[in-house]
């Protein structure tokens, strides 16, 4: 549905987006993940035909973003970063204006406005002035606008920034619900967001794609290997040595071991392909150390992200 090939954007001296290529299939929810300044907004602005690429290209539903810009824009719904709106207008006036701009006739406009205001929980503020609304409501107005013409593709730039936790939860639920009907590309620098709503993640850093895959794939990839946390009562040094001998254990790190016969917490890094939990538990019990907890902990995308960025900085990615 979205196909990006060698897309590049240079602002003066700044290389903001550096030859990126990716595909988004119909109905997918794809997260575009990266730290501030990674080039997310710039990429989305090129996809929405706001900025032309310096080189490379992209197509949306088979339409070229440069040569068929108007058709592309008519099948896209876009929520720009920071949700710019005409603050002096009332919510229904704004949506009506946007509908007219998209040449929707009166009855379609009325039907779609009712639908999007319902879907984005805007019915209660329909007659309020946008400038008087809270950030959360404005975000919904922006989303309602993006949805108004029932676009095939929705592009959302940091849709939950500046919202409170309840609003974030509601917005994510809405986004997840939209998945089936629309193809969705959303950018974020918050990891739990992609884990919560996206079927696929594209990690971008320094204008380059550093990884892509499902959140699970990324989590299970080598860099992302899980670790096993063990908490028991025993002599720290001996516990460490015993655990290091367990087959499949790649490394042991004591997190807060104190002197003899007090609590030890160890983080074990398994070798690839091993599940070391049962063997570790058996070893500890054999030594007669009371086992308090053993837990497999998946690394968060956050760690991956930091690694990816670090690798990139060292020129290894």
């Amino acid at each position: 549905m979205i196909s990006v090939s060698q897309l590049t954007k240079v602002y003066g001296q700044t290389l903001a987006v550096d030859h990126i290529s990716f595909e988004v299939a119909q109905g997918q929810i794809v997260g575009f993940l990266g730290p501030n300044g990674a080039g997310k907004s710039t990429t989305l602005r090129m996809l929405t035909c706001y900025l032309p690429p310096t080189s490379g290209g992209a197509s949306v539903d088979g339409l070229d973003i440069f040569h068929q810009s108007e058709q592309v824009r008519s099948i896209l719904g876009y929520l720009p970063e920071n949700v710019p709106l005409y603050t002096e207008m009332k919510v229904h006036e704004y949506l009506d204006f946007r509908g007219r701009l998209r040449r929707m006739d009166r009855s379609t406009r009325r039907r779609r406005m009712g639908y999007v205001m319902d879907r984005c929980w805007l019915k209660s503020v329909e007659h309020k002035t946008i400038g008087h609304l809270s950030k959360g409501y404005r975000q919904r107005v922006g989303l309602a606008d993006a949805l108004l013409h029932d676009p095939k593709v929705l592009i959302l730039d940091e849709p939950t920034v500046g919202l409170d936790p309840t609003q974030i939860r509601e917005t994510r639920k809405l986004i997840a619900d939209l998945g089936g009907d629309h193809t969705l590309l959303l950018s974020t620098h918050i990891l739990p967001e992609v884990e919560a709503v996206c079927g696929r993640v594209i990690v971008i850093s320094g204008g380059k794609i550093v990884a892509q895959g499902s959140p699970d794939e990324l989590r299970n990839s080598r860099k992302m290997s899980a670790r096993v946390l063990v908490e028991c009562r025993g002599p720290a040094r001996e516990v460490e040595q015993a655990l290091a001998r367990v087959s499949g254990v790649g490394g042991v790190e004591l997190l807060d071991g104190q002197s003899d016969h007090s609590m030890v917490t160890a983080a074990l890094r398994p070798k690839e392909g091993y599940d070391i939990r049962e063997e570790v538990a058996r070893t500890i019990i054999q030594h007669g150390w009371p086992l308090r907890e053993i837990r497999l902990e998946h690394a968060t995308l956050e760690e991956f992200f930091v690694q990816g960025t670090a690798n990139q900085a060292m020129g290894r990615a």
């Binding site: 602005r45 706001y50 058709q71 824009r73 876009y78 720009p80 710019p84 998209r102 922006g142």
Partner: peptide, 8 residues
Amino acid sequence: IETLMTAP
């Protein structure tokens, strides 16, 4: 301007 120009 961005919302405006990204409408058709």
